[in-house]
Design a protein around this nucleic acid. Structure first.
Length: 565
RNA sequence: GCACUCGUAGCUCAGCUGGAUAGAGCACCCGCCUUCUAAGCGGGCGGUCUCAGGUUCGAAUCCUGACGGGUGUACCA
């Protein structure tokens, strides 16, 4: 339900009827319950323009506000705020209407866009590590969210499958012969072993260099080995995606190497547009205000990542015909994206109407505030981190002793993985964030577990009640009013989250929803003997709706719910 | 040096396209289970929103500057 937009329309009409001209009506959530459900703060500004007393204007305006349906009452408060209370009856009817709606009241956007979301982007030479975690889950959430709202989303996994280190890896793979496949199980070790050989043996090092050239020239044997290597490495990533419930598949892979044939054309285009300058042998673009160039071709003829990204931008805009292109990449690359976005538009590789966005995120820190590493300073493998999350989750729920072994595995998986993802998604993505097992696996506060627990509690109600679910929601008190209202705010929340690409908007919402539900649950008994049948049904329906929103909300975040904890 | 970014309760974080007395969780203290999952709920304690100016009827929010932390800055990605 787009409540804010409905209220804007009503206020707009009221202002028109009061002969006041204005353009943008911004409706805000009320800052406190005493101030109603929503407020309109624009009167003070208008009063200034009209050189009139704001309270007087507000009083005139509220006379004109239509209170026959959505709005229960309005009030002038303070220097000229208009506070708005929604009607219980309206909330109850709207909530009842979406009981069987799988979208829980969320519509489709009016103008669907074609959106490319570029995320995850692992390097094929190494195993996925914690550095890939944020991009993978933030990107997946944004893609899922945009898709759910009705946009045409194209996921792009820009995997690193090209570069000098591959010569070394492939040479080593060949040297290992049949054992190569076996040894590739541990990519990290394989890389280390190859590097060791490279450093020890000149003969091997030379061979590795030869292989780089051979791959680039398209030597069939080398390409075959390379392909084999990429397949196995990609399989590792897919194992991680599966464990993480990240929806990326092989169809979404658009590797770095894909753009190789297009790189000379990028340089040519820039040349033709007169953007290219030769500097110290390298081909560069100088953007105004900076002495430091963006290099697109090295002195030795090699290309750089700016070149690849430019080719990617052009491909996405022209071939994929995207209206919006989102790069879910570490904040440290902010300058790089600013540069390539500017160049791409200047060179008409991307039309001006295309929205280019760097969805930046901060670094994952450990308890002491330093970048997250293993005890000996190495990078933490993602798969290890996830396994540990599940083990820890299992420890915490074992005490309950309510599950069979099979259930325990399933529940621990949902809770452990959910905890890791939620902890990441629930903070403003642009700031660095502190990774804490204790915090993320707590039942208290804004955690996945708290949401999952609420869902399970509702599940418990319905295990006890197995009658029909049919009837009308009746709003009887303050807490039911708040619960119905927040359920109907789901769409406004998702719209905000998609506009700003901020998953934490969704987690904050879910936390508020669940907090209100928990209060409702404490205050308003449902299955007690002395509850009137229509009240009982209404409360059951409100619980059911709450569960539906929790489930859908967590689903967008890529987190599973369980019926029992 | 220059650019970007952050600075809110003891800790971790919301709030930032200007609005009313700045909010949560953790920690600490006090209550509530013969009652739908107490891994819950209620109450209390806790603040010069880094500092100084400015714009405004109104600033945590916008502007300028200072201080402090992080990051990036020519042939890696």
């Amino acid at each position: 339900m787009k409540i804010k937009s409905k209220l804007s329309t009503i206020i707009q009409k009221a202002l028109n009827n009061a002969n006041i001209e204005t353009s943008d009506i911004v409706i805000s959530d009320a800052t406190k319950p005493e101030f109603g459900d929503y407020q309109f703060n624009g009167i003070m500004k208008l009063a200034k323009q009209l050189r009139k007393n704001p309270r007087e204007i507000a009083s005139t305006v509220i006379e004109k506000i239509d209170t026959t349906n959505i709005i229960e009452k309005v009030e002038v408060a303070g220097p000229g705020f208009i506070n708005i209370w929604l009607s219980n009856k309206w909330l109850a009817n709207e909530a009842t209407d979406i009981l069987d709606d799988p979208r829980v009241g969320v519509g489709f956007v009016e103008k669907p866009q074609k959106v490319v979301v570029d995320y995850s982007g692992p390097n094929m030479a190494k195993q996925m590590h914690v550095g890939h975690l944020r991009s993978s889950i933030i990107g997946d959430t944004i893609a899922t969210l945009l898709e759910f709202l009705g946009n045409d989303v194209i996921r792009q996994n820009h995997i690193g499958d090209w570069g000098t280190q591959f010569g070394m890896l492939i040479a080593y793979l060949e040297e290992q012969g049949a054992d190569g496949n076996q040894n590739l199980k541990d990519l990290e070790q394989f890389y280390k072993d190859a590097k060791k050989r490279f450093d020890e043996s000149d003969e091997f090092a030379n061979k590795a260099r030869e292989y780089v050239v051979k791959i680039q020239q398209g030597d069939p044997h080398c390409l075959e080995l390379w392909q084999k290597f990429i397949d196995i490495s990609l399989q590792h990533c897919e194992d991680v995606y599966k464990k993480l419930s990240v929806k990326l598949t092989r169809d979404d892979v658009r590797a770095e190497s894909f753009y190789n044939p297009r790189l000379p054309k990028v340089v040519e285009t820039l040349q033709n547009r007169g953007l290219l300058v030769d500097s110290n042998g390298a081909k560069c673009v100088f953007l105004d205000g900076s002495d430091v160039p963006v290099i697109v071709q090295k002195g030795d003829g090699g290309y750089l990542y700016a070149t690849t990204d430019l080719a990617g931008l052009e491909f996405r805009a022209k071939d994929l015909k995207a209206n919006r292109i989102c790069y879910v990449v570490d904040a440290r690359q902010g300058e790089h994206f600013k540069q390539v976005f500017t160049i791409a538009k200047k060179a008409d590789m991307v039309d001006n109407s295309v929205q280019l966005e760097h969805i930046a995120f901060g670094t994952m820190m450990d308890k002491s505030g330093k970048p997250f590493k293993t005890r000996d300073g190495g990078t933490v493998k993602l798969i290890d981190l996830l396994d540990e999350a599940v083990i820890r989750a299992k420890e915490t729920i074992k005490q309950r002793n309510t599950h069979s072994q099979e259930e325990l595995d399933k529940v621990a998986n949902a809770i452990g993985i959910g905890a890791v993802k939620y902890a990441d998604l629930s903070i403003n993505r642009e700031s660095n964030y502190l990774f804490s097992w204790d915090k993320m696996l707590s039942f208290d506060g804004n955690t996945a577990l708290y949401m999952q627990y609420a869902y399970a509690r509702i599940g418990s109600i319905f295990r006890k009640y197995d009658g029909e679910l049919k009837g009308q929601i009746i709003i009887d008190d303050e807490i039911e009013h708040r619960l119905a209202l927040i359920i109907l705010k789901f769409e406004d929340t998702l719209l905000k989250a998609s506009k700003e690409a901020t998953p934490h908007t969704i987690t904050s919402y879910l936390y508020d929803l669940v907090t209100i539900f928990m209060k409702f649950y404490e205050q308003n008994p449902i299955l007690k003997d002395d509850i009137e049948p229509d009240i009982k049904m209404s409360r059951l329906l409100l619980s059911k709706l709450t569960a539906n929103v929790i489930k859908k909300g967590l689903d967008i975040l890529g987190i599973e719910v369980v019926d029992k904890i």
